[in-house]
């Protein structure tokens, strides 16, 4: 895939290039280059199949990573395009004009990560959740266990003992 990297580099400013497998590479680009790069990949490099679009929350860095994974079936290779956007007030350009199906992905990202895609069809409609009031659940700082415990009743009567402390307590009741 070296050839592809070379060709793309002539076209766009490429960031970090990670060759994961012989047939799979990831590349980072700036958000303003994304649309052009995807269009180029689709129209000129044969990456016609949008496999998925998803986000990764790098909470520590204050960034979302959007991954656009594309597949070129004829050449049997995949490329994942990464775009890093700030977590605060996250929004991104919609690509539903390139792939209509991307609108679904963008709806999900809007709901699950709180990333806005202005202009994407039905992006503000509820998708999976209904009546959700907390922060978008796929964000790293959302604690699902805590939420579940506060929200839903659990069956009482569960206690567990730590073998280490239990043994100490039983065998050395005075703590020695």
């Amino acid at each position: 895939m070296q050839d592809l990297q070379t060709r793309l580099a002539q076209h766009t400013d490429l960031g970090e290039w990670t060759q994961q497998r012989a047939d799979l590479a990831f590349v980072t680009v700036a958000r303003e280059h994304l649309h052009g790069l995807l269009r180029h990949l689709r129209d000129h490099e044969g990456f016609t199949h949008l496999v998925l679009l998803t986000a990764v929350d790098w909470l520590e860095d204050g960034q979302f990573q959007l991954t656009y994974l594309m597949n070129n079936r004829a050449a049997a290779r995949d490329i994942g395009v990464r775009v890093l956007i700030p977590r605060e007030g996250a929004d991104m350009d919609s690509i539903h004009d390139l792939w209509p199906t991307a609108a679904t992905y963008q709806r999900e990202l809007r709901e699950m990560f709180g990333i806005d895609f202005p202009g994407s069809p039905r992006v503000d409609e509820e998708f999976i959740l209904e009546g959700w009031r907390d922060m978008p659940p796929y964000r790293r700082d959302f604690d699902t266990l805590k939420y579940a415990q506060e929200e839903f009743a659990e069956r009482p009567g569960r206690v567990s003992k730590d073998p280490e402390t239990h043994m100490k307590q039983k065998l050395y009741p005075d703590g020695a």
Binding site: Q20, L24, F26, V51, G80
Partner: peptide, 11 residues
């Protein structure tokens, strides 16, 4: 079990 930093896609 810890796995080093990375990302991949399996289809």
């Amino acid at each position: 079990w810890k796995i080093p930093r990375g990302e991949t896609y399996i289809r």
